[in-house]
């Protein structure tokens, strides 16, 4: 009898331990959350009819511990970046009554296009160090000044002015866009975000980066590529202009001359 009672107690204890244990030691043993994501469109074609397009970035939190879509356990940040290209930024100053470009700063690179969407404003999601390290947010984009310009110029107030100007100009042109609540959860683990590529988006491959965070800590990230290329007539003309400029120029002249001549012919027939 005693053995039986002891066995029952032991069994009960084991059962209880089994029930309580996950709650007590959860962080240590539960599988880590990771993020998996993808982009609705893997390749974007710029044709002569291109007037911008929307791409959807969706993904899922593996091993989500979020009780519901509204719980807000996780933060997700989606960044879509265009290729980086060198550019010159110029500042006008008044010279003898006229506004003339006087100062300039050459940047070795900054993304031609940058779209960011997040579950809430990024400043609330994580601290500046993490954002800078991962280039999340306009303020944290790495803008490298080009060789000569960077000497003795890097941390001056002027350089900061030029950086801010880049952000302002890019936002004005609709090429740097942010959406503070642009990522939404659907259910416990599924999320999605819509990014709009404007009609003037610079042509070149895009990189989509997805970050999963909880309590200001980066849990996981995922990177995906989207190709963006000119297609059809658009591609043919652009390639011709840049790779065979002489032929392109001659073709332009011939077409223009033919148009002019045919108009003259047609008109002389009509008026004669």
């Amino acid at each position: 009898m005693r053995n039986l009672r002891n066995a029952a107690i032991a069994a009960f204890a084991v059962l209880l331990t089994c029930l309580i244990q996950p709650v007590l030691s959860a962080p240590a043993d539960l599988p880590r959350e990771t993020v998996e994501a993808d982009v609705s469109t893997r390749s974007v074609s710029i044709t002569s009819g291109f007037t911008g397009m929307e791409i959807i970035i969706f993904g899922t939190v593996e091993n989500s511990r979020q009780p519901s879509a509204e719980a807000g356990t996780y933060d997700v940040v989606v960044v879509v970046e265009g290729t980086t290209a060198p550019a010159v930024v110029r500042k006008k100053a008044r010279v003898g009554g006229l506004w003339i470009n006087s100062q300039s700063m050459r940047f070795a690179s900054f993304p031609a296009y940058y779209a960011i969407a997040s579950t809430r404003p990024i400043d609330e999601i994580a601290d500046a160090d993490l954002l800078t390290k991962n280039e999340i947010g306009f303020k944290h984009i790495n803008m490298k000044p080009a060789g000569r310009a960077s000497i003795g110029f890097s941390e001056t107030a002027d350089a900061q002015d030029f950086r801010l100007a880049v952000l302002r100009l890019k936002q004005r042109d609709g090429l740097y866009v942010k959406s503070d609540y642009g990522v939404g959860f659907i259910g416990r683990s599924l999320f999605r975000s819509t990014i709009t590529l404007p009609p003037n988006v610079p042509v070149g491959p895009l990189t989509a980066r997805v970050y999963l965070l909880r309590d200001g800590q980066l849990l996981s990230s995922y990177t995906s590529k989207v190709t963006m290329e000119r297609a059809g007539v658009e591609r043919f003309l652009h390639d011709a202009a840049f790779e065979r400029p002489l032929l392109y120029g001659i073709a332009m002249i011939v077409l223009a001359a033919l148009a002019g001549l045919s108009a003259a012919f047609a008109f002389s027939r009509i008026s004669a």
Partner: peptide, 23 residues
């Protein structure tokens, strides 16, 4: 015509689609 050729070769600033629309 010579200007078109030079702009196309040196500056890459001749837009054939725009030109045909205007013409």
């Amino acid at each position: 015509a010579f200007a078109v050729l030079l702009h196309a070769v040196q500056n890459r600033t001749v837009d054939i689609v725009l030109a045909l629309l205007l013409i």
